[in-house]
Amino acid sequence: MILNNEKFKNFEEGITIEDLIQYKNFNRNLIIVKINGKLINKNDYNKRKLKQDDKVEIHYLLAGG
């Protein structure tokens, strides 16, 4: 499983986006989540189980400067 363009080391089959958010301590109010290019709704974070060949993007869309 790739997370943000890097191989995710502690992958276990069946973990959810919610698990990832907690594990990596993402700020859920500021992120957008895509799995294989598809946008995932906040409500589905704890439903969608991840697979070995999934490509996950958890991005902060932040302005600045």
């Binding site: 943000n4 363009n5 890097e6 993007e57 958890i58 991005h59 902060y60 932040l62 302005a63 600045g64 400067g65």
Partner: peptide, 18 residues
């Protein structure tokens, strides 16, 4: 000056431009 490029989150946090 950061007016031209502010890529720090996109790069460092999101790793969108590896």
């Amino acid at each position: 000056q950061h007016d031209e490029a502010w890529l720090i989150v996109m790069d460092m946090v999101n790793n969108q431009i590896p």
